[in-house]
Design a protein around this nucleic acid. Structure first.
Lengths: 219, 219
DNA sequence: CCATGCCCGTCAGCTCGCCGTCAGCACGCG
DNA sequence: CGCGTGCTGACGGCGAGCTGACGGGCATGG
């Protein structure tokens, strides 16, 4: 993704740029609104990260101008302003999301990914397995088009199996996935979980491989 | 443009209505604040023409209430009061422009056109989610066509969810949105807010995702 | 200055979904 | 037939989440 970062704080700007660059994004960093505006006219960015507290103008007004021009580039606002009304003002000015300083770089990356997913030509990756459609981002499974509500355990189990459809996943692996060594189970909890999942998704979707584990009916 | 005219003088009201209608505007004419308020809640107007000298209430207070609700519909004030301090009071109450009686109908039309120009280009995006219509610019929600009055908290919550319909929003995220780190809540305030919002919008509109958060029922 | 009403945080009691446990059964294998 | 492995219905406890009630805060209005 090609990202325009508008941020005047050198330390923060560098940190954000480096972090996103490390995630294989192409980041252009501007510290002034005037320069940013020029860059936006010249280059088709996939995303704009906009700090509202810039010294050479009002970020919100900048954003409104952008939208008034018909520019629909997704904008993620970074700011220290944290009042609800100001967030709302930001969103009403045309921001797609809002991140309040100080923010975690990991969270920033997640938001960036979310925006990217939302606006990319291919939305989010849907896994299609037989009659099942698995939307990992939205945490939604549909069977023959009908949504199937899953509990947390069931979802975790399905995700583990759906990661590589057709591959055998050992029961022990599933066990340590569902119960990450905090509390071992001393029963057939995994089997029960599989059973319950099968009841919701259909018995034929999960195949038992005796002595080894389970696998999703891939194809 | 859809214009709400609030004016109790029959002759003037008729003149204004006819003149603007002749310029291809859709004009609703109310002579009382109470009726005007009801109309404003029900219909998304592009512009309000407000006479301050109405017999059933203070026009300025009416305007302040409107703004306090977060309604950003442009308001053009018509009045006989011409003192500078009163103009200032009007603008501080949230008026976008001011016209002193007697005014020329041509000038009125010019001001209306100016407002239209200022707000054109971005027709406010309406979010449609099931039976809900969410007008973010005007802060109006309708359910099955009927307007639903929301408090500030309720609106903030709805907007957070409506930003990405169908996506799960973590309870912690909602919490930091509603109570931006000024004062943390040590109760189930978010749950209560959701409950109250559900009571207004219908239980089925907001889905609980156990252990994760909430989401708006997309489509 | 008090009355009224709305907003909303807090709390308590409750409901209900989740899920680990267990027991009884099915089935494959030698 | 005996054993091992896996399946599933039933049970019950735990805890997340829901909601009615209460009260303080704040604005409005008389």
């Amino acid at each position: 993704m090609r990202i325009l970062l508008i941020e005047d704080d050198p330390a923060l700007g560098e940190a954000v740029r480096d972090h996103l660059a490390g995630l294989a994004h192409a980041v252009d960093w501007q510290t002034r609104l005037a320069e940013a505006e020029a860059a936006l006219r010249a280059v088709p960015y996939d995303l704009v990260l906009l700090d509202l507290g810039l010294p050479d103008g009002d970020g919100l007004a900048f954003l409104k101008r952008l939208r008034a021009r018909g520019d629909t580039t997704p904008v993620l606002v970074l700011t220290a302003r944290d009042r609800v009304s100001e967030r709302i003002a930001g969103l009403e000015a045309g921001a797609d999301d809002y991140l309040v300083k100080p923010f975690d770089l990991g969270e920033l990356a997640a938001r960036v990914a979310a925006v990217a997913r939302r606006y990319a030509g291919d939305p989010n990756p849907l896994l299609e397995i037989g009659p099942l459609l698995i939307d990992r981002a939205r945490r939604i499974v549909t069977k023959d088009g009908a949504p199937v509500p899953l509990s947390a355990r069931e979802w975790a189990l399905l995700e583990a199996l759906a990661l590589r459809p057709g591959a055998i996943v050992a029961k022990e692996r599933l066990e340590e996935l569902l119960y990450p060594m905090g509390e071992e189970v001393e029963s057939n909890a995994v089997e029960v979980a599989v059973s319950r999942l099968r009841k919701k998704l259909g018995a034929e979707t999960i195949e038992t491989v005796r002595g080894l584990g389970y696998r999703l009916k891939g194809r």
